[in-house]
Write a protein that binds this DNA or RNA. Structure first.
Ligand SMILES: NC(=O)c1ccc[n+]([C@@H]2O[C@H](COP(=O)([O-])OP(=O)(O)OC[C@H]3O[C@@H](n4cnc5c(N)ncnc54)[C@H](O)[C@@H]3O)[C@@H](O)[C@H]2O)c1
Ligand SMILES: NC(=O)c1ccc[n+]([C@@H]2O[C@H](COP(=O)([O-])OP(=O)(O)OC[C@H]3O[C@@H](n4cnc5c(N)ncnc54)[C@H](O)[C@@H]3O)[C@@H](O)[C@H]2O)c1
Lengths: 208, 208
DNA sequence: TTTATTTTGTGATTTTATTCACGAAAAAAC
DNA sequence: GTTTTTTCGTGAATAAAATCACAAAATAAA
């Protein structure tokens, strides 16, 4: 019923709806959302139908109402707290990114092993890794981002599990395995680069 | 024949093969690669079969030979030059990432509108955006990364097209459209966060 | 009010992707 | 040298995803 790509599409519909709302749309049609996200109108309707999101025949979807429903499905009707482990180039970019603020994503702390990174005064404090479990429990955080080097990722993952973390977004280029207790999404940027390279090379290749 | 997710899998097989090679494996089986990447062995063999990558019955695949073939399919048998537009938090993280060096991905320059970012002396110089077209043509770069704020992304995209860029990896949270001349991969990190939130929330939800 | 038009919602159909299953080849064991 | 074991390669079968197509509802027009 709920596959990864279907949920990714719902997020995109939500983003498209936000954009259309900012252009003063009051209602949108499946056709608009399809155009904005690059899928067919019936794909949009089928996705909505599966989550019980309904509109009005001939009237489309009320943007405000649609956003409420999408946010509800996506679990974004309440703030979601994340911690970041590894405050290097990437970790810092995520912590400093103000765009998450607009959404309900809150990065509440960073953890590192390098004392030079510590900063207890920042909005999202940067703390020693030893304080991870205590912080996560005290603040009821169950989502984490791994942004440490590949060789450190498995160890950090195990610490996160012990700290009661339930979901991990892993940027290190190794595959961490999900299990019943912890959902892991591995996001390998290098793989995304390679994918682009492939499609550019095959399209421009003079042999076809 | 060649779909996006199939190519993503090939990249993962390649990464797995590199890791197994570093563990002194000389040959690998479809079963090993499946385990390492989270797919079935027959998926691995089918993917290989589609690209004419073959091994030996009972002997599996010679790691070195496999890597040569995978790199060839993926277009990674030669260095691939990228430029980054927008040298902010994310752009800087990408430019400074040494991990791309090991692979054949080379970020050869950054471009920005903020003079405070310029630095002609760096290995990958940071240059004014006006020099983009000249640089891209002089250095035969056809791949680019967009790491500017959302409102600037469409404008930058059009400049990249004029500069003869053929492939774009877009980190700004708006959907840029590919056409026959330019391949675009939109990578929305917020969407990835939302996806994780959904799966964690639905799994831990006490209602099911 | 009646008729025409538009757009949803969803089963039926088609397309695409994955897995199954087994013959053939290669290596190992006997 | 023969038999057994293992693993590939791939066509056939199954499963999953996307699209089609159309009745039903809602609105607008007449
Ligand atoms: N920067 C990029 O653009 C980029 C691109 C692709 C992939 N990645 C991946 O993302 C991850 C982070 O990359 P980065 O460029 O930010 O690396 P980085 O080296 O800049 O930062 C890593 C940080 O992790 C900290 N660290 C190391 N071991 C730790 C541990 N055991 N516990 C807590 N903290 C620890 C280090 O002190 C450092 O601050 C890496 O796995 C990298 O391969 C990064
Ligand atoms: N930082 C993150 O973790 C993160 C997370 C999700 C999405 N993103 C997206 O990635 C993009 C970059 O994010 P960031 O945090 O690095 O932003 P940033 O504000 O730190 O940097 C943006 C850079 O782009 C430059 N710029 C602005 N307009 C430009 C133009 N027309 N031409 C050239 N350069 C221009 C700015 O001078 C700045 O250096 C944004 O679209 C953001 O939404 C970032």
């Amino acid at each position: 019923m709920s596959t990864r790509s279907r949920i990714l599409r719902l997020s995109r519909y939500k983003n498209a709806a936000i954009r259309l709302k900012s252009l003063n749309f009051v209602k949108v049609f499946s056709d608009n959302l399809g155009d904005a996200t690059g899928v067919t109108a019936s794909q949009v309707r089928k996705d909505f139908s599966i989550f019980g999101i309904s509109g009005n025949r001939r009237g489309g979807y009320q943007v405000d109402e649609l956003l409420v429903q999408l946010n509800k499905v996506l679990g974004k009707d309440k703030p979601q707290k994340f911690i970041v482990v590894g405050v290097g180039n990437l970790g810092r970019a995520l912590i400093n990114y103000p765009g998450f603020g607009k959404s309900e994503i809150r990065i509440v702390a960073g953890f590192d092993i390098d004392p030079a990174k510590y900063n207890r005064k920042a909005d999202a404090p940067i703390l020693p890794i030893d304080e991870l479990a205590g912080f996560a429990k005290a603040n009821e955080v169950e989502l984490a981002i791994i942004a440490v080097p590949d060789f450190a990722a498995q160890g950090v993952f195990e610490k996160l599990i012990k700290a009661g973390i339930k979901g991990v977004l892993n940027f290190a280029p190794i595959r961490l395995k999900s299990d019943d207790n912890v959902t892991v999404h591995n996001l390998n940027l290098e793989t995304e680069f390679e994918n682009l390279i492939y499609f550019v090379n095959t399209k421009t290749s003079p042999t076809e």
